[in-house]
Lab assay of single mutants.
Amino acid sequence: RRRVRAILPYTKVPDTDEISFLKGDMFIVHNELEDGWMWVTNLRTDEQGLIVEDLVEEVG
C-alpha cells in the first residue's frame, strides 16, 4: 500500500470528512480521488478521512 508523510500540519474544516494532522504524521492511502484529495488512515491517530495531496510527500 502507498504511504505518504505530512510535510505541513493541517486543521480540518468543521463538518467535513477531512482529518486534522501534524507535520510528520504517516498515512496509508486507500483511495485517490479527484482534485488531489486522498482517503487515508492516519497511522498515529488511527483516524480515517480526507487529506489533500499537496500537504504530503511520498515515502520510499
Rank of each mutant, 00 (worst) to 15 (best):
R1F: 13
R1D: 12
R1P: 15
R1E: 14
R1A: 12
R1S: 15
R1M: 15
R2Y: 07
R2F: 07
R2D: 05
R2M: 06
R2G: 06
R2K: 12
R2I: 06
R3D: 04
R3W: 14
R3N: 08
R3Q: 12
R3E: 10
R3F: 14
R3H: 13
V4T: 04
V4A: 05
V4Q: 03
V4R: 05
V4C: 07
V4L: 10
V4M: 08
R5S: 06
R5E: 05
R5A: 06
R5D: 02
R5K: 11
A6R: 00
A6G: 04
A6F: 02
A6N: 00
A6K: 00
I7R: 11
I7A: 05
I7F: 07
L8S: 15
L8C: 11
L8D: 08
L8R: 14
P9D: 15
P9F: 07
P9E: 12
P9Y: 07
P9T: 13
P9R: 08
P9C: 09
P9W: 06
Y10F: 05
Y10T: 02
Y10V: 02
Y10L: 02
Y10Q: 03
Y10M: 04
Y10I: 02
Y10D: 00
Y10C: 03
Y10R: 04
T11N: 12
T11M: 11
T11I: 13
T11D: 13
T11K: 10
T11A: 09
T11W: 08
K12M: 06
K12E: 04
K12N: 05
K12R: 12
V13S: 14
V13Q: 15
V13G: 09
V13P: 05
V13A: 13
V13E: 11
V13N: 14
V13M: 15
V13H: 13
P14F: 08
P14D: 10
P14S: 09
P14C: 06
P14K: 11
P14A: 11
P14G: 08
P14H: 09
D15M: 12
D15S: 09
D15T: 07
D15I: 05
D15Y: 12
D15N: 14
D15Q: 11
D15V: 05
D15C: 10
T16W: 03
T16Q: 03
T16S: 12
T16V: 03
T16E: 02
T16A: 03
T16I: 03
T16M: 03
D17F: 13
D17I: 08
D17N: 13
D17Q: 15
E18V: 05
E18N: 05
E18L: 05
E18C: 05
E18I: 05
E18F: 06
E18D: 03
E18W: 04
I19G: 01
I19P: 00
I19W: 01
I19S: 01
I19Q: 01
I19R: 00
I19Y: 01
I19C: 04
S20Q: 03
S20F: 02
S20T: 09
S20V: 02
S20K: 02
S20E: 04
F21Y: 08
F21P: 00
F21L: 02
F21V: 04
F21H: 02
L22A: 10
L22I: 12
L22P: 02
L22D: 11
L22F: 10
K23I: 11
K23P: 10
K23W: 06
K23F: 08
K23A: 14
K23E: 13
K23Q: 12
G24D: 10
G24Q: 04
G24S: 05
G24C: 08
D25P: 01
D25G: 01
M26D: 07
M26R: 06
M26W: 10
M26E: 14
M26Y: 13
F27K: 00
F27R: 00
F27N: 00
F27C: 02
I28Y: 09
I28C: 08
I28W: 10
I28V: 13
I28H: 08
I28L: 12
I28T: 10
V29C: 03
V29E: 01
V29T: 03
V29F: 03
V29N: 00
V29S: 02
H30D: 07
H30M: 13
H30V: 08
H30E: 11
H30N: 07
H30F: 08
H30Q: 08
N31K: 14
N31M: 14
N31V: 15
N31C: 10
N31E: 14
N31H: 15
N31I: 14
E32I: 10
E32W: 06
E32G: 06
E32P: 06
E32C: 10
E32V: 12
E32S: 10
E32T: 13
L33S: 09
L33I: 10
L33A: 09
L33G: 09
L33N: 08
L33Q: 10
L33Y: 12
L33T: 09
E34D: 12
E34T: 12
E34C: 09
E34W: 10
E34Q: 13
E34P: 13
E34M: 12
E34N: 14
D35H: 12
D35N: 15
D35P: 07
D35T: 09
D35F: 11
D35G: 14
D35W: 11
D35Y: 11
G36D: 04
W37D: 03
W37S: 08
W37I: 07
W37P: 02
W37N: 06
W37K: 11
M38T: 03
M38S: 04
M38N: 03
M38L: 15
M38E: 01
M38Q: 03
M38D: 01
W39E: 05
W39V: 06
W39F: 11
W39L: 08
W39A: 04
V40H: 00
V40F: 00
V40Y: 00
V40L: 01
V40N: 00
V40D: 00
T41K: 07
T41Q: 09
T41M: 07
T41R: 08
T41D: 02
N42Y: 02
N42L: 13
N42T: 02
N42W: 02
N42S: 10
N42F: 02
N42I: 03
L43W: 04
L43Q: 08
L43F: 06
L43G: 03
L43R: 04
L43D: 04
R44H: 05
R44A: 06
R44C: 06
R44S: 07
R44T: 06
T45D: 04
T45M: 03
T45Q: 02
T45S: 09
T45W: 01
T45L: 03
D46T: 12
D46C: 12
D46L: 14
D46W: 13
D46V: 10
D46K: 14
E47H: 07
E47A: 07
E47I: 06
E47D: 10
E47W: 03
E47S: 06
E47P: 00
E47C: 07
Q48V: 14
Q48R: 11
Q48K: 12
Q48A: 11
Q48P: 05
Q48I: 13
Q48C: 10
Q48M: 13
G49W: 01
G49Y: 01
G49R: 00
G49C: 01
G49Q: 00
G49A: 01
G49S: 00
G49K: 00
G49M: 01
L50A: 10
L50Q: 08
L50C: 09
L50H: 05
L50G: 04
L50M: 13
L50I: 12
I51Y: 01
I51K: 00
I51F: 01
I51M: 04
I51R: 00
I51S: 01
V52N: 15
V52C: 12
V52E: 12
V52S: 15
V52R: 15
V52M: 14
V52F: 14
E53Q: 13
E53R: 15
E53W: 13
E53S: 15
E53C: 08
E53I: 14
D54K: 14
D54Y: 12
D54Q: 11
L55E: 03
L55M: 14
L55S: 09
L55Y: 15
L55R: 09
L55G: 04
L55I: 07
V56C: 08
V56W: 03
V56L: 05
V56R: 01
V56P: 00
E57C: 07
E57S: 07
E57Q: 09
E57N: 06
E57P: 00
E57H: 07
E57A: 07
E57D: 06
E58Q: 10
E58R: 09
E58F: 09
E58M: 08
E58P: 12
E58N: 12
E58Y: 10
V59L: 12
V59N: 06
V59I: 13
V59P: 06
V59H: 08
G60F: 14
G60V: 14
G60R: 12
G60S: 15
G60M: 13
G60H: 13
G60P: 14
G60A: 14
